[in-house]
Amino acid sequence: MGNRLKLFWARDHRRDGVLLGAAVGIFGVTFGVLAAASGLSALKATAMSLLVFTGASQFAALGIVSSGGDPLSALGTALLLAARNGVYALSISEVLPTNRVRRLAAAQLVIDETAAMSTSQPAMEESREAFWITGISVFVFWNAGTLIGVLVGEVVGDPLSWGLDAAFPAGFFALLLPHLSNTRKRVAALLGAGIAVIGIPLLPRGLPVLAAGLGAVIAATAGGNKR
């Protein structure tokens, strides 16, 4: 290894940022495979990963469309899931550059991974580096993974498509687990699930998921102060 590379790698926050991106790349592959199995074109799947660049929202939109839901409810659900990025942006706004163009570019990288990495650093310099290294690493690996996944999915997509209607909710469950970090969030999830159960027979298709968002309204109004 070259000396500069060794120096770069010696710092935990840099190494962790790169490795986290590589791990997210595996998610990118699964997204690509599911996209291909759902019949989404390679171009659309790649465009989604480049432009939307928010994993849970992409999986949700894909899952709803692939189960025959209408695009509008897919859009609404995916946007409700993306709202938390606004909170991340608020909380790491000081870490991001003040230069307008760089700030606009940095905004696209505000996601779960960059927010977690930059808020867990002891000082501002490390926070900034962690944000950029993690963000660029996740962006590169997520998009490369999507592309690989689409290609793999065109080969193995058919067998997977037999159980796609279970793969999606099981994936959502795996994505949900890290968001159950405190009691208020667990209550929000339980309320969301309960509202959806009641909503299925009562509301038109697509609305029960949006109504589940009310679970967050109730939990945030009544619940404790933890993030």
């Binding site: 849970a56 949700a60 899952g63 709803i64 189960s67 659900t77 409700l80 899931l81 709202a83 938390r84 606004g86 909170v87 608020l90 209607d165 279970a166 999606f168 909710p169 959502f172 469950f173 994505l175 949900l176 968001h179 159950l180 208020r184 969030k185 667990r186 929000a188 999830a189 339980l190 309320l191 969301g192 699930a193 509202i195 959806a196 159960v197 909503g199 299925i200 027979p201 298709r205 029960p208 998921v209 949006l210 109504a211 589940a212 968002g213 009310l214 679970g215 967050a216 309204v217 939990a219 945030a220 109004t221 619940g223 102060n225 993030r227």
Partner: peptide, 26 residues
């Protein structure tokens, strides 16, 4: 703050339920 970050668990949980149990309105 709390509302925006609680939307993710609430909506994901609702989505799981709908995808697992919705048989077209039943």
């Amino acid at each position: 703050y709390r509302l925006l970050s609680d939307l993710t668990p609430a909506v994901l949980a609702g989505l799981i339920v709908v995808q697992a149990f919705d048989g077209g309105g039943t």
